[in-house]
């Protein structure tokens, strides 16, 4: 997982401060998989909270996350990617072991943003 971190961001340096001369022709986006660079986590109004003590690492949660915000390393899930989690709570609903609570608010919005 997280192969994105090894890739070069071809849109590096083009942002909301760029001159019109530097915005790509046609607004083309160079490279792929670059939604990682778009922080959608601050859209969140509810926030999942992982309780590692209850978690059995059954890994039912990570494939249902629509935002790929549950990282898995060496066969085990880690804490949420709050830079991208939108707080939909699907993971909490699927978890058979009560290992995910959902609290209101956007806690951790800037948390693990890469």
């Amino acid at each position: 997982m997280n192969v994105m971190n090894e890739k070069k961001n071809l849109m590096e340096g083009i942002d909301e401060r760029s001159s019109w001369r530097d915005v790509t022709p046609g607004g083309f986006v160079y490279g792929s998989g670059n939604s990682e660079y778009f922080n959608t986590g601050d859209w969140r109004t509810r926030t999942p909270v992982w309780k590692p003590d209850n978690c059995r690492q059954c890994l039912l949660c990570f494939p249902v996350c629509p935002d790929s915000s549950i990282p898995v390393y060496d066969g085990k899930r880690g804490d949420f990617d709050f830079g991208h989690c939108k707080g939909c709570a699907i993971c909490a609903k699927i978890c058979p072991f009560g290992a995910i609570d959902v609290i209101s608010g956007s806690a951790g919005a800037q948390g693990s943003m890469k």
Partner: peptide
Amino acid sequence: LAVGPYSVSPYVIEM
């Protein structure tokens, strides 16, 4: 490459 992506207001006037 992605062509024709949604453009938020910080980019439209530059385009």
